[in-house]
């Protein structure tokens, strides 16, 4: 039963969202390490939040027709709660609203593999992944 902890988490996040001033995304060594690895794989020294934003909000072809975009489930504003196609609530993707985001390399790898295949019909490149994480850490 994950409902209860989820509720508490959602409640806290909501309180943060409504009341507390929005803090700039906090740096986290684990997340930094994940991004650093994407940098090494892509052979670049920095990622672009603007490119990541464009990719995240774009409508893609090649994947399943029901899910043309990352925003299908994560909504147009990654600071909001999302919803799966079965109605399950997805916690916000923006690091400012959900500091635990992108801190578990296995989880990040699993969902990039799945969601990119579902939306684009292919895996995302290290460059794309790095841009997306940079974007989601910046808002």
């Amino acid at each position: 039963m994950k409902l209860f902890p989820n509720l508490i988490l959602s409640g806290t996040l909501l309180a943060v969202a409504l009341g507390a001033p929005i803090q700039p995304a906090q740096a986290d060594p684990a997340r930094d390490a994940i991004i650093a690895q994407f940098k090494a794989q892509a052979g670049v020294s920095s990622f672009s939040a603007a490119r990541g934003k464009k990719f995240f909000h774009a409508k893609h072809a090649g994947g399943k027709p029901e899910t043309p975009s990352c925003t299908t489930c994560h909504t147009n504003d990654p600071r909001n709660f999302g919803k799966t196609r079965v109605g399950k609530v997805i916690d916000p993707m923006a690091v400012s609203r959900n500091p635990q985001r992108f801190t578990d390399p296995k989880k990040v790898a699993k969902w990039f593999r799945r969601n990119c295949k579902t939306v684009l019909g292919r895996e995302c490149t290290a460059q794309e992944k790095g841009d997306i994480l940079t974007y989601l850490s910046s808002i």
Partner: peptide
């Protein structure tokens, strides 16, 4: 069911 739910 129209999604990739693959696992290691």
């Amino acid at each position: 069911f129209g999604e990739d739910a693959s696992l290691d």
